[in-house]
């Protein structure tokens, strides 16, 4: 009985921590997909100043630590009067950062599509928007699934950085229990939790890859 009690004492709060982790992860992921696509389209747009703006944005987001960006949004923005709730601050920082990475994945995917596809669509009278939406992006999705899978798994793990914002995510809960009980088990449990999450994602992405491979020879 004592054992089950103890396990419950560890696992229950950690399940709550996982909820915070998953919340940050899922919301960021949902925001990043459309934003990343928009930024990617901006990166290959004809307009030079737009391309330049996108390049600077990507350079900053990839060129500075995510931790620094988190601290900036959380501590520096309030100094200029922008005060966000904890979760919104974390979401903002993760979204800004990951949009840059996803944009680069999408851009590479779009640019890997053969020029003949654009020419064929053009000769059939399709507009740029129609060509992108119906011809290019559907083919791009299939090609970017493997790198997307990578970045998505990174995102799950990077959510652990929010422990510095005093938010009770999975890692912070684990650490709190470890410090209180002088028992390393919670770290192991946290590891298992992360593994389960990334396993589900890997499985999901594999399913998607199989689905999109249906038109291969």
């Amino acid at each position: 009985m004592f054992q089950i009690d103890k396990i419950a004492q560890i696992v229950l709060p950690m399940l709550e921590g996982s909820e915070v982790t998953l919340q940050i992860f899922l919301l960021t992921f949902v925001f990043v997909l459309p934003l990343g696509l928009l930024v990617a389209l901006g990166h290959i747009a004809k307009c030079r100043s737009l391309r330049f703006a996108v390049e600077v944005y990507i350079w900053i987001m990839r060129g500075t630590p995510l931790m620094l960006q988190l601290l900036f949004v959380y501590f520096a923005l309030p100094m200029i009067g922008i005060r966000l709730p904890d979760i919104a601050a974390a979401l903002l920082a993760f979204t800004l950062n990951y949009t840059a990475y996803f944009a680069e994945i999408f851009r590479a995917g779009i640019q890997s599509i053969d020029r003949g596809q654009y020419e064929a669509a053009h000769m059939l009278g399709m507009s740029y928007g129609q060509t992108m939406r119906r011809i290019i992006i559907p083919q791009m999705v299939r090609r970017v699934l493997p790198p997307m899978s990578n970045e998505t798994i990174n995102l799950v793990k990077d959510t652990s950085l929010i422990y510095i914002l005093a938010m009770n995510d999975l890692l912070r809960v684990a650490r709190t229990i470890v410090q209180r009980e002088f028992d390393m088990t919670p770290f192991l449990v946290a590891g298992v939790f992360y593994l389960v999450m990334t396993f589900v994602l890997t499985w999901g992405f594999n399913k998607l890859e199989v689905h999109f491979a249906r038109y291969d020879a």
Partner: peptide, 24 residues
């Protein structure tokens, strides 16, 4: 075109009807 440039993610029939539906 020399390289056909069919849309690989669409069936033969969808290749044919895509532009008439989207454009016309």
């Amino acid at each position: 075109f020399q390289q056909f440039n069919l849309f690989p993610h669409m069936t033969v029939m969808d290749n044919l009807i895509e532009a008439p539906i989207q454009v016309k």
